[in-house]
Amino acid sequence: MSSKAAVEAAVRARPSIISTGPTPAVAVTPRAGVGYGCSEAPRGMLWHRYRVDDEGRILEARIVPPTSQNQARIEEDLRRSLEDFGLQHSDEELRLRISLIVTARFA
């Protein structure tokens, strides 16, 4: 299922997730600046940083998801697992092993 189809299905299944009432915010006067933060995500910390102009338009955004922070470790775990499993196995067996490792890591 594509991302678009998934979102459309979610909207159909739960129309109340789309707010039709007043915006739950306070009035602000835009100004140029940089904002950043982080939040806990299922696989680690999600870091984000935004630079906006004096009209509040986003000029630059950087989002660093946990997966990219853990990429080197993921690759090393995968390499070691495959070496322990044995590289003499068929391509199909190796693909299945990779699938199991990645699924277990992100379960």
Rank of each mutant, 00 (worst) to 15 (best):
A61Y: 01
L78M: 11
V7L: 12
M1N: 07
E55F: 03
I18P: 07
A9L: 01
L78R: 02
L46S: 12
P66R: 02
A72I: 10
R14A: 06
H48N: 04
P66V: 01
R105Y: 07
P65L: 12
P30H: 09
E8K: 04
L82C: 03
E55V: 05
Y36P: 00
H89Y: 12
A25G: 10
V26R: 15
G33L: 08
M45D: 13
A41L: 11
A9R: 00
R14S: 08
R51W: 01
S99Q: 12
S90C: 06
A104G: 15
Q88D: 12
R14V: 08
A72K: 08
D54L: 06
D84A: 11
V52C: 02
L59Q: 12
A72G: 09
T23N: 12
Y50I: 12
E93M: 11
A32F: 06
L82A: 05
T103S: 10
L78A: 04
I58S: 01
L82F: 01
V64A: 13
H48I: 06
A61R: 04
T29G: 04
V102C: 02
A9Q: 01
M45N: 10
I18D: 07
R51M: 06
R51I: 09
T29M: 09
A10T: 02
E55S: 06
A25Q: 15
I17W: 05
L87F: 04
H48M: 07
H48Q: 09
T67P: 07
R57M: 11
P66E: 13
G56P: 03
P66D: 11
Y36N: 12
P66I: 01
Y36I: 09
V34P: 04
E55A: 08
D54V: 07
V11A: 03
V34G: 03
G37Y: 05
G56I: 10
V34I: 14
G33D: 08
V34H: 09
R95H: 14
E83D: 11
R97T: 08
E60S: 09
R31A: 14
P66F: 03
L87R: 12
V28H: 10
A104D: 15
R95D: 15
A32Y: 03
E76Y: 05
G37K: 09
